[in-house]
């Protein structure tokens, strides 16, 4: 079974948030703050939205490909 381009793209989109969140030291810091909220907190919250977008793209690709 040959691996298709859309399968690779979907896998990458699904994996990016894992890489981002598992690199804990890359975001474990206080500054820059956002309205008094330390980086550690707002960065992870922002990535909730970005993860949703990336997973949504992956789901769209898989749904279209199947």
């Amino acid at each position: 079974m040959a691996v298709r381009g859309w399968q690779v793209a979907a896998a990458v989109f699904l994996l990016i948030p894992f890489v981002v969140y598992l690199s804990v030291p890359s975001y474990n810091m206080v500054d820059p703050k956002f309205y008094g909220l330390p980086f550690f907190y707002w960065y992870q919250t922002l990535w909730l939205v970005l993860s949703g977008i990336l997973f949504g793209l992956a789901a769209w690709l898989i749904n279209r490909g199947e």
Binding site: L48, V49, G52, I53, F55, A59, N63
Partner: peptide, 11 residues
């Protein structure tokens, strides 16, 4: 599949 994919935004 799509509904699950978008749930992080709900988070």
């Amino acid at each position: 599949r799509l509904s699950q994919a978008l749930l992080p935004i709900y988070g």
